[in-house]
Every structure is written in C-alpha cells, then in structure tokens.
C-alpha cells in the first residue's frame, strides 16, 4: 500500500516531449497554421469567446460568399481531430475478455456479411457544424478496397489526413471467402504496428459484430456496401465496448432503414437509403446510395449544438 500518496503523485514519472515537437510547431506556423486559444482568465475568455463567435460567423459568411463566387480554394484549419477517423478497430480481436452484455438488441441479429466488397476508393471530407455554422474542414478520410497480393484476399485500407494532425492509417487483409481477418497494420505518428491473426476464433472474422462503433470509423462503410439494403431493412449486432483497461461489455448496435432521400455531395447526386444507427445513447445517420450501394454521407450529433459530418467528395470506381 502506498503510504504517502501526495508525494508519490508528484513523483510519478513523466516522459519528455518528442525532439521533433519544436520543429513541428515552427513548421505549422511557417505553413500558415493559426489557432485561437482560450484566454487564461475566465472574464477575458468570455470576451474572447464573443469575439471568436463574431469572427467565426463573419468567416463563415465570407466563406459562403467566396464559395458561391468560386473564390474559395481548399478550406482547412481548426484544431486537429485525431480520433475522428480511427479506422478499423475490430475491438473484439483485441479484447482480453468480454465481461457482460448490456441492453437488448432491437432487431434480428446480423450474422455475417452477405456480399463481396466492391473494389474502389472513396474520399470523404469531415466537417464539424456548430450552431448551424459550417466550420472549417476537419480533414480527409479515405477508404480503399483492392484485391490483395494473395489470391482470394482483399485489402481494406483507410487513412486520414489533417493539416494539423499527424497522418494515421490502417489496413486489413481479409480472406474473402471466409471473411477471416489475416493481418492488420496501422500506422500513427510515423510508427506502424502489425497484428497477424491466427484463425483460431470466430472473433477474427470480419462481421458486423466487429464493426467499429466509432461512427467516424471506417469498417462499417465497407459493411454497409456489402450488406444489401431495402425499404424495411433492419438489423442489430452486439458490439464489444471498452469500459476500462482490458474490460469489455457487449452492447447492441441497432440499424434500420428509415427512408429514402436524394443527396448531393461534391462527388455527385445520389438516391440514398437513410440508415439510422443507435448505439446506447448515441445516434448516427448514414446515407447509402442505392445503386451501387455506397456510403455517401454520415452525420452524428455531438451534444446539443454540433453535428459531425462526413461527405463523399470523390470516388474511384473499380477498374473494368
């Protein structure tokens, strides 16, 4: 038992900042990076918030005018959203023990992925919309699906880039006939980590139950493309949810088609299914084009005043 808690707290070891941080800061400044910091004291903070709000509104108005006049090039900036786009993350594959199940699935359980993965490359732009004001770009997410080097395998890869964030990405090699995950590699901060699966458990199959419920994530996009939707389509899945270090519980993820809508994005105009997703108290809405079936837009409320949005900006169809 630690007897002197307070002195031990002060003595906890702390790593130093990386040697590249100084250059990264100066590099960001040199590239034109600017951030609005909160003020040190609350009174001026509130004042600054008012100013920031006015500036943001003015900037949004100016951006709108510029965009309509064709004068806006590549909108970017803002605080990095590192985790908004963490790619595949088949949590169950890394779970060391699922402790319990919470909640009850609302619809029939989704057992497996019915279709094949379509090859192609889809690029999404992320935005955070606060109080109805479309803020600057929150980075680009890309999903690519291609045939693997080994016969019968498919490679799902994804990456995200942002002006102020380190690039990160992920790839998953899958045996297409069995949907077994074979190898997963992710990179972040210049480092990569590879995990080879051993095929000894059903938890290592690409399936809805292994979908990353982070709705900024990626795997669900591939699954929505490979799962035929229809007007009354419904489905639920139990998804592992981390509740602490090496502790997991299963919670239901409920999905249903709630309607149809025509959506226009920079990639084109699409007739879409609207898929409503509910996971605990979180909700998301995904627009999936009907033919071919592709995710073209998604929205997730962030609190009462903000919406996280990603829209398809370009798509590369598979080679004929």
């Amino acid at each position: 038992m630690i007897t002197n808690l307070y002195s031990m707290l002060k003595a906890l070891p702390i790593p130093g900042p990386g040697p590249e941080l100084r250059d990264r800061i100066l590099g960001t400044r040199a590239a034109g990076g600017r951030l609005v910091l909160p003020a040190a004291d609350p009174a001026s903070h509130r004042k600054a918030l008012r100013y920031t709000g006015s500036i943001a509104a003015a900037a949004a108005l100016a951006a709108l005018v510029l965009a309509r006049s064709g004068g806006l090039g590549d909108p970017s900036g803002g605080v990095a959203e590192f985790l908004a786009g963490v790619p595949f993350w088949p949590r169950a594959a890394f779970a060391q023990g699922v402790a319990d199940t919470t909640g009850r699935a609302k619809y029939e359980l989704l057992d497996k992925v019915p279709g094949r993965f379509a090859r192609g490359r889809w690029v999404y732009e992320a935005r955070l919309i606060v109080d109805g004001i479309d803020t600057t770009s929150q980075g680009i997410r890309t999903l690519a699906i291609a045939s693997g080097k080994e016969p019968g395998t498919v490679v799902l890869s994804t990456d995200q880039t942002h002006r102020f964030a380190r690039p990160m990405g992920d790839s998953l090699v899958v045996d297409e006939a069995s949907m077994q995950m074979l190898r997963r590699t992710f990179y972040y901060q210049g480092k990569s980590n590879t995990h080879d699966f051993t095929r000894d458990t059903i938890r290592q199959v690409v399936a809805w139950r292994n979908v990353d419920v982070g709705w900024h994530g990626t795997l669900y996009r591939a699954l929505l493309q490979a799962t035929p939707l229809s007007k009354r389509w419904r489905g639920s899945v139990y998804v592992p949810r981390g509740i602490g270090k090496d502790r997991w519980v299963m919670s239901p993820l409920d999905l249903r088609v709630s309607g149809e809508e025509t959506v226009t994005t920079p990639a084109g105009r699409f007739s879409c299914w609207i898929v409503e997703a509910r996971f605990r108290n979180r909700r998301a809405r995904v627009w999936v084009s009907q033919s071919p079936q592709r995710v073209v837009k998604l929205e997730q409320p962030q609190g009462e005043d903000a919406v996280w949005q990603q829209v398809l900006v370009s798509t590369t169809p598979p080679a004929p």
């Binding site: 900042p17 941080l21 990264r24 800061i25 960001t28 400044r29 990076g33 600017r34 951030l35 609005v36 910091l37 605080v79 990095a80 590192f82 102020f164 964030a165």
Partner: peptide, 12 residues
C-alpha cells in the same frame, strides 16, 4: 498536441 496548439496559437 496540446503544447503544439498552445505555441501555434501563442502569437495571436
């Protein structure tokens, strides 16, 4: 990232 953001925003 916090330190990065602080120094990037510091001049302003």
């Amino acid at each position: 990232d916090v330190v990065h953001d602080v120094f990037v925003g510091l001049p302003e």
